[in-house]
């Protein structure tokens, strides 16, 4: 296998990796906010369920969770769903990352001084207006560094998709390396992850800069 065929074979894997990454963020960033808000729900049982969900997601390996989502439907219900591999993967990633983001959001929301709520309340803002206009923008700024950490972890975590034999860049690197007895695929994968993280860090830094107009 020439270097260029190696690159083009792995290129397809890189696209799949980017796919997992993007879909996970699209799903987990908003879902995390829903979870964070439910975590503070006035209804006790809702808070309880959310607390258990968060601690299970954070207390067990993501790799194990992916296997459960993939094999669960068959072992639990006897269902064999065609084409379930990729959806299982995304469900696993989204639910796992939503739990982490929820905790980051919660910390951010709790760090906003009570006075901000009270000032808004006295001015007559509704609860929704207070959250969306006054609290959330300040939360976003405060949590950016933690979100950046999490997103960079996600770039690397996408490689866990190999658990379900999904052919993203890391799985392909392993396969090609074994079949070609070459170390090169790992080097290519490493460079790919490094560049991907560099791009992510750059983008996040730009967002943080854009939020730098106030303190």
């Amino acid at each position: 296998m020439t270097f260029s065929t190696m690159i083009s074979t792995m290129g397809a894997g890189m696209l799949r990796t980017v796919g997992i990454f993007v879909l996970t963020l699209i799903g987990s960033l908003p879902l995390g906010m829903v979870v964070a808000l439910l975590r503070k729900s006035r209804i006790g049982p809702v808070r309880g369920v959310i607390r258990v969900y968060i601690s299970v997601m954070r207390g067990t390996p993501l790799m194990l969770q992916l296997l459960v989502w993939y094999f669960g439907p068959f072992y639990l219900f006897g269902w064999s769903i065609r084409g379930w591999r990729f959806p299982a993967l995304i469900v696993g990633f989204v639910l796992n990352y939503a739990a982490y983001f929820a905790e980051i959001y919660r910390g951010g929301i709790e760090s906003i001084p009570k006075g901000q709520y009270e000032a808004a309340e006295v001015l007559g803002y509704t609860r929704a207006q207070t959250f969306l206009r006054i609290i959330l923008p300040q939360v976003v700024k405060r949590i950016m560094p933690s979100v950046t950490n999490e997103v960079i972890t996600l770039v690397k975590d996408t490689s866990l998709a190999f658990t379900l034999a999904y052919q993203e860049v890391f799985s392909l690197a392993k396969q090609i390396s074994a079949s070609q007895t070459s170390f090169m695929p790992f080097v290519i994968a490493g460079v790919f992850y490094f560049i991907a993280n560099y791009v992510v860090a750059f983008a996040m830094e730009r967002i943080e800069k854009a939020l730098d107009y106030y303190r």
């Binding site: 901000q116 009270e118 000032a119 300040q138 700024k141 106030y214």
Partner: peptide, 12 residues
């Protein structure tokens, strides 16, 4: 209306 000791302006 209420003016607070700590102002509580909206920083953003």
């Amino acid at each position: 209306g209420l003016v607070f000791q700590q102002f509580h302006l909206f920083p953003h």
